[in-house]
Design a protein around this nucleic acid. Sequence first.
DNA 1: CATTTATCCTGTAAGC
DNA 2: TGCTTACAGGATAAAT
Length: 292
Amino acid sequence: MPELPEVEVVRRGLARHVVDRTIAHVDVAHPRAVRRHIEGGDDFAARLVGRTITAARRRGKYLWLELGGEGADAVLAHLGMSGQMLVAAPGRPDEKHLRIRIAFDDDGAHPSSGTELRFVDQRTFGGLAVSPGGSELPKELAHIALDPLDHRFVDEEFVTALRRRRTGVKRALLDQTLISGVGNIYADESLWRAKLHWARPTETMTRPAARLLLGHVKDVLTEAIGAGGTSFDALYVNVNGESGYFDRSLAVYGREGEPCNRCATIVRRDPFMNRSSFTCPKCQRRPRRPRL
DNA sequence: CATTTATCCTGTAAGC
DNA sequence: TGCTTACAGGATAAAT
């Protein structure tokens, strides 16, 4: 599932393969993939043709491709649960869930000349849209907090904001308006490293405890990027179709019934927000007054 | 206003 | 074997 590390790996692939290339054709095969582009698929395509991609950027789980020329618009993308950005040879057979195809007008100078960009998305929670230019950050992302790997992220502001919340610590980690980029997998991994239960009320966390948690969040995200991301359900791949291998380093996520790496206690799974939370019941004590 | 819940979607796997 | 059901979960609209 694409969280910050997976999106960052994809962003790096896009920076390598499509930046400095000019768009020649755009085919929208499924309207749902551009549902956030209010003007529709035809307008989406028309706005891209002839534009040159000048940069690939990311905040949290969002990424965007900056477009040169008038307007300085951007193609804003979210991978949702199963979105893939694939760099493919044009002759390769279409993927079953191919949603958008972007072809380029290459003169042979770019190392990736001749390839096309495909947005493939099985569960259709992801999508692309053109975001009007004029600001450094696409305006649709104004409510998305800085992610913890952004150099502008201020640790002490996060610590203060976290402790001001009146909710469970995992809910807070998943709140993209508080800290962006963390999803279910890395939330569980960070909490395990910090020895915190997901239902721990944020208001009971000390500042040092919050700092330690944040440090673990940064560590796990950084390590996962280094491993090429987590391909737990094989729906996540990089732009070349390759899986990441951080799943081998997961301590609790998806390990129900297996022994904790620290104390060998059996990892348990709890229902949480229409999904699951994985914890070691010994390392991560359930609070007396849990906030679900 | 702050917080929580329901909803979107499809493929896989478990259960009967 | 074949059908039904549960599950995966990010973002957001709607509800509390």
